[in-house]
Measured scan of single mutants.
Amino acid sequence: HHHHHGSGALAALHAEGPLAGLPVTRSDARVLIFNEWEERKKSDPWLRLDMSDKAIFRRYPHLR
């Protein structure tokens, strides 16, 4: 159930192989992290948004 927010940013994801479903670039990863943060913020208003490279690598090590 993907609803768009204002920016309408869509992340490019790997379609197949071992990385299927994972973001292709760091900016794609940022979109995913932001979208998930927006969702989680509803139940956790104090949740901090962390889109640093460090956060991205921790989450998606293949982007190193």
Rank of each mutant, 00 (worst) to 15 (best):
H3C: 13
H3R: 09
H3S: 10
H3I: 12
H4Y: 09
H4S: 10
S7T: 14
G8E: 10
A9D: 12
A9L: 13
L10V: 14
L10M: 12
A11D: 03
A11S: 05
A12P: 03
A12Q: 14
H14D: 02
A15Y: 09
A15N: 12
A15I: 13
E16M: 08
E16S: 13
E16P: 04
G17P: 06
G17W: 03
L19G: 02
A20G: 05
G21D: 05
G21K: 03
L22I: 02
L22S: 03
P23Q: 02
P23E: 00
V24F: 05
V24N: 02
V24D: 01
T25H: 06
S27W: 15
S27E: 14
D28Y: 03
A29W: 00
A29R: 00
V31Y: 08
V31G: 03
V31E: 05
L32K: 03
L32C: 07
I33H: 01
I33N: 00
F34C: 06
N35Q: 15
E36C: 05
E36Y: 04
W37A: 01
W37I: 02
W37M: 02
W37H: 05
E38M: 15
E39Q: 12
R40C: 07
R40Y: 08
R40W: 06
R40N: 12
R40A: 13
K41R: 14
K42R: 10
S43N: 13
S43V: 14
P45C: 06
P45H: 07
L47R: 07
R48G: 07
R48V: 14
L49C: 06
L49V: 06
L49E: 01
D50M: 03
M51L: 14
M51F: 08
M51E: 02
S52R: 06
S52W: 01
S52F: 01
D53M: 10
D53K: 07
K54N: 13
A55F: 12
A55S: 06
I56F: 01
I56L: 08
I56C: 02
F57I: 09
R58Q: 14
R59W: 04
Y60D: 00
Y60S: 00
P61V: 03
P61H: 02
P61W: 05
P61Q: 03
H62P: 00
H62L: 01
L63N: 00
L63H: 00
L63S: 00
L63W: 00
L63I: 03
